[in-house]
Amino acid sequence: MKQITYEKIVEEVARLCQEANYDLGQDVIQAFEDSVKTETSEAGKSILNQLIDNANIATANRVPMCQDTGVSVFIVKLGQDCHITGGSLQDAINEGVRTGYEEGYLRYSIVDDPINRKNTGDNTPSVIHVELVEGEDLEIQMTAKGGGAENMSALKMLTPSDGLEGVKEFILNTVREAGPNACPPLVVGVGIGGNFESCAYLAKKSLFRPVGERHVQPDIAALEEEMIIEINKLGIGPQGMGGTTTALDIKIETAPCHIAALPVAVNLNCHASRHKHVRL
């Protein structure tokens, strides 16, 4: 049985938090560069180029690419033969966030209570999803999820008669209503199926896939291809200033569901699509 210490987790999580905020993934930068070539709006091209400059400044100066350094969201795959020593997994992750955000000069964006709204002063608690898997590894995936795009996300309990057409319409409507508020170009995460809460999780989880990668299942991959074209016909463009790059990518995940149900969740991510992971 593999042993992993509390301290090791704290250290790795702190590093992930900082790297996520300073170093935009190469997949996203590549998508910016590809979009500059296809974008038909001159203003849109200029915005995309400024986003590339912004990412470069952030990496070079070790400063966050965006001031909203987000809610720290984790998907943890814990091998059932892995043993964590010295404290709980949840505490270790929150301690890592606390350290990473403080030492990295990242913004504290969490309030203790949704109604009374007092800032917790260390960006905790984070949102942690744990999946128990086979093996003895501990895999930690982290994203810093900003408020602007999260606020424009939506979930709807469609029913089977709404069908695939209803799903497509809901995706397009969500992106249309978000417009510039969610900081396009977007990465659109979609969950179809499951139940009320698992559908939202599917959408969030889909955003952890690299930008530019298609789903392994050919029918879902085809739906992704189709929807990226449809979304980019909306005209919203970079920052809502008009153009053909409304989204850099779309990710779709599906799950079995009840005979009466067809839930759809659309979790929008802005262009600051900050994901990092480590396997211990």
Binding site: Q50, L51, P64, M65, C183, A272
Partner: peptide, 11 residues
Amino acid sequence: AAIGGSGALLA
């Protein structure tokens, strides 16, 4: 409007 998500550049 300023460019959302370009906080490092705008700073």
